[in-house]
Amino acid sequence: MMKSEEGRGPGRPRSERSRRAVLAAAHELLTDSGLPGLSVDDLAARAGVSKNTIYRWWPTKAAVLMDAFTEAFADRMEAPADGDALTRLRIQARRVAELMNTPEARRPFVALVAAAQHDPELADALRERFLDGRRAEVSRLISTGIADGDLRRNLDADVIIDLIYGALYYRLLVSGARIDAAYADRLIETLTPIVRA
């Protein structure tokens, strides 16, 4: 019986070690050398696996890159579980602002967003593997806030999310203005009269 490159027979679970090596390689390459010209061959060489191993786990290079970014940083952008809705929104906005102030997160995220404008596969991966999850998390926060009586009942969660993240990402990607915890606080304070019950 032929063995796979990880030394297992067909039908056995794929190697978690190989998967994590690919994610680590993708993160390192994004941080060290940026996105332009980065190939599956580069990922395979850095991770010490074959291209086939990568394609068994991910459909495209874009999917690998987005999973690597998400795995590295998503837990630092999670909405808190405790507190009233406005406090949780403020903490969430602060977490995003503070993370995007760090070069190890800012540089790959800006590169991914920029490249996604010209790469439909990367744009899909950006939405499906990163943005959709973040939006769903904040949408649940807003829904809980409405149910608890912290937020107005007729709020449109999608619009509120766009207002918060649109402002943060505009500074990050377009204006270059400072994005930090103080700005996040001002942003939520400005929205408070609009959203509070």
Rank of each mutant, 00 (worst) to 15 (best):
R135N: 11
P120C: 01
R46G: 07
I91D: 05
R90E: 13
A125Y: 00
L112W: 09
D82S: 07
V96Y: 10
V40L: 07
T192W: 03
V159P: 00
V159S: 02
D82H: 12
A181T: 07
P108F: 05
R171K: 06
R186G: 15
A26N: 00
V40K: 00
L23E: 05
A25V: 09
M66S: 01
G34W: 11
S50Q: 11
D158M: 11
T190F: 10
W58I: 00
S39T: 13
L172G: 05
R171I: 02
P36L: 12
R106E: 14
E104K: 09
H27L: 10
D67F: 04
Y169V: 04
G149P: 12
R56G: 04
G9C: 12
T192D: 11
V22I: 15
I161A: 01
G11C: 08
T190W: 04
A81E: 07
N154A: 15
A115Y: 00
W57A: 15
A62R: 01
R8G: 11
R178T: 14
M66R: 06
D67K: 04
L89C: 03
K3G: 12
A21H: 01
T60G: 02
L172F: 06
A81H: 05
G133N: 10
L89A: 13
V195H: 05
M2V: 15
H27F: 02
A97R: 07
G34E: 11
P80Y: 02
R20E: 05
M1N: 10
P59E: 12
E121M: 03
S15D: 13
P10S: 04
E121G: 08
